[in-house]
Amino acid sequence: MAMIWESIKHLYAYLAVIPVIPFALILFGYGAIVQDRKKAFRLAMDITTALLIGCVAVLFDDIFSSRFGLYGILLFMLLGGGLIGNAQFRKRGNIDAKKIFRAIWRLSFFTMSLLYIVFMLIAVSKMIITGNA
């Protein structure tokens, strides 16, 4: 059982390092199967978001020498969900949790993509400057 868990962790780590590859594989692979580009793009976004969250959390922890990366991301996602839920309640009088979760998850894709690029550039430049490979 431990070997299976380790294999899953390694697979996740390899996919999360360069999330563009799983995104493209899902987009074109699933898109070819279902023949619906929008549905394939959404699925690719959803799966890549999970990879980006882990990668950005690790990069944050490495750059800032902290252990708050994942918790900070989850905190911002919860705060965003609360703000969107509040706006939805004020406008409609009820809350659709599924729509809120989907909106936060998809917004997280764009936020994590931007943070991934910024943190990766910082980490690579930090590695080049200090000479640590």
Rank of each mutant, 00 (worst) to 15 (best):
M1T: 00
M1F: 13
M3A: 15
I4D: 10
I4Q: 06
W5L: 09
W5T: 06
S7P: 00
A13G: 07
Y14Q: 15
Y14P: 00
L15W: 15
P19M: 09
P19E: 09
P19T: 03
V20C: 03
I21M: 06
P22I: 12
F23Y: 15
F23R: 07
I26T: 09
G29E: 01
Y30F: 15
A32E: 08
A32K: 13
V34G: 03
V34C: 08
Q35W: 10
R37T: 14
A40F: 10
M45V: 14
M45G: 07
D46N: 15
I47T: 11
T48I: 05
T48Q: 03
T49R: 05
A50Y: 12
L51N: 04
L52C: 10
I53D: 03
G54N: 05
V58A: 09
D61W: 04
D62F: 06
I63D: 00
I63H: 02
S65G: 05
S66E: 06
R67P: 01
G69C: 04
L70R: 03
Y71E: 10
G72I: 07
G72T: 04
I73M: 02
I73V: 06
L79E: 12
G81K: 08
G82T: 09
G82P: 03
G82C: 07
L83T: 06
L83G: 10
L83C: 07
G85H: 01
G85N: 03
F89Y: 14
R90A: 09
G93E: 05
A97W: 13
A97I: 12
K98H: 04
K99Y: 09
I100G: 06
I100V: 14
F101D: 02
F101P: 01
F101E: 05
A103M: 09
I104W: 07
W105K: 10
W105A: 10
R106H: 14
F109A: 02
F110M: 04
M112I: 08
S113H: 10
S113L: 15
L121W: 02
A123E: 11
A123W: 05
V124I: 15
S125C: 05
S125H: 03
K126W: 00
K126G: 01
M127E: 07
M127I: 04
T130F: 01
N132R: 07
